[in-house]
Amino acid sequence: MRYIRSSLFVAVVWLLLSGHYTPLILSFGAVSVLIVVWFMWRMERVDEKLEVLPMRPRMLYYLLWLMWQVVLSNIDLVRRIWDPDLPIRPTWQRLDTKVTSSLAKTLYANSITLTPGTLTTDVREDHFMVHSLSPDGIEDLRKGGMEEKIQRLGI
């Protein structure tokens, strides 16, 4: 079942990328879809079961909120870059995390890294190591707004 869904997805991506719809090219496409799904089946032996982010409305809302955070921190960072005094105070600190599932941790760490000004350098059992351009960045994360939003996603 899962393979049917992924092969459908791969086929749609192929059709969107190709733009040529003659029988010969289409058969090439079918063969490549089969090869990709075969690779995925082979990878299951090495890797554990694939975990996929569920695309619920709440998830889309979170991504939109994340983009807004990215815009805000970009404005802050650009202001710092063009300031002649270069007002940065880099710190590298431990950030305790409450999220437990590996998917939520991945999302949280990637969200921290995607926001300019903060950068996850290490992911451990119960904490991340976060590098920040100013102590405010880490303080904002400690307040836990982003983490709560991820916890409420229920992944």
Partner: peptide
């Protein structure tokens, strides 16, 4: 400009992030 002005590798990463995320 940030890539050139920042003092060490880790702060340069943030500067490079500006161009890639927004």
């Amino acid at each position: 400009v940030g890539l050139l002005r920042m003092p060490d590798f880790f702060s340069r990463v943030h500067a490079s992030g500006v161009t890639e995320t927004l």
